Simulated assay, not measured.
Amino acid sequence: MKRVTDADVERASNEATDWLILLQEEPDDAELRQRFDEWLKARPENVSAWASTQSFSDMAALLPAVREAGAVTKTPAAGAQVSPMSPRTSARRWAMPALALAAAACLALWTGPAMLLQMRADHVTGTAELRQVDLPDGSRVILAPASAIAVTIADDQPGRRVELLSGEAFFQVRPDPARPFRVRARDVETTVLGTRFDVRLGSDDVAVSVEEGIVAVATAGAPIENAARLVAGQFVRVASDGLSTRGSEQPELVAAWRQGQLYAQETRLGDAIDQLRRYFGGTIVLTDGRLADRRITGAYNLADPEDALRGMARVHGAKVRRLTPWLLVVSAS
């Protein structure tokens, strides 16, 4: 018996996805159905791939992506574009019946938090969009994709405050000894006078990394003498339970997303995928919690989030299935 290789499995998986689309597009085509039956019987891996594809297709109906309408978005630093769905792809009838009702059901769940975020935020970015924000005090913020901030800076106020509501942001703070600059992300507050640093909201932690200068990181409201002091090339991750992890990296790697790169250093795969989701105009599903806890180290190109995802998964022998142009599923096998 011929040994089934990883390449055979990958080929069968891709072909199964193609067959799913074709059969949904032309359900009454007898010749197409006959060719499908012949393909299904040709190799044992085809049977397995088809069963898995049908299972994931059912999942797709429960996990529709809410896509942003509009034009192509750009990552300015990398100069890369993320193109919208092609007319032919968007017209594929197979996705519509199964996903329309699910999209309607999920829309209320999605729009509620999104509307609240929009109401609180002063500046917001969309998928794969970077935006530079010049603040009234002369400081500058670069917002990562799918991020939002609320700004409280006025001449008649003693302090300068920015709240990171979602995503990630890089701050270049104009020095002013009389007016400390504070960035709050959940219960974590970073205080500076003048420096360059990055703050990221993870699913279960807040990460602060310093490119230049010194920052103090503490739980909001805690005495400043209890704060963790970070200098250039240092970072701290504060988990939701209050535990913190410190480390170091090359300063030039801080907020590498500005150059279209994601650098992972012993990072949980689940956390890396969370970051990648901000660059993919759809949904990425990770089916295995144990896989999410695996660690990865490497550099990944944010201009091609699907290829980056496949590279991350490959480290631990995981598989990435593309069920639609906007749905990727990561599984252990």
Rank of each mutant, 00 (worst) to 15 (best):
V4W: 07
T5S: 15
D8A: 04
N14D: 12
E15Y: 10
T17Q: 10
L20I: 06
E26R: 13
P27N: 09
P27T: 08
D29A: 12
E31S: 11
F36N: 10
P44D: 13
Q54Y: 02
D58T: 09
D58K: 09
A65D: 03
V66E: 07
T75L: 10
M85W: 11
R93N: 11
R93C: 02
A98L: 14
C106Y: 09
L107T: 14
L109A: 15
A114H: 09
M115R: 15
L117T: 10
A121V: 13
D122M: 10
H123A: 15
H123M: 08
V124C: 11
T125F: 02
A128V: 05
R131H: 13
Q132H: 08
P136S: 11
G138P: 09
S139C: 13
L143V: 12
S147C: 09
I149S: 07
T152Q: 14
A154R: 15
G159R: 09
V162C: 12
R174I: 02
R179F: 05
R184V: 05
D187Y: 03
D187G: 03
D187V: 05
E189I: 01
L193R: 04
F197L: 01
V210H: 07
E212H: 12
A228I: 12
A228L: 06
R237V: 03
A239W: 00
L243T: 04
G247S: 10
S248G: 09
P251L: 06
L253Y: 10
A256M: 09
R258L: 06
Q259M: 08
Y263L: 10
A272I: 11
I273N: 04
G281L: 03
D288G: 04
G298C: 00
G298F: 01
A299T: 02
L309H: 00
R310E: 00
R310Y: 00
H316R: 00
G317A: 01
T324E: 00
P325I: 01
S331E: 11
S331Q: 08
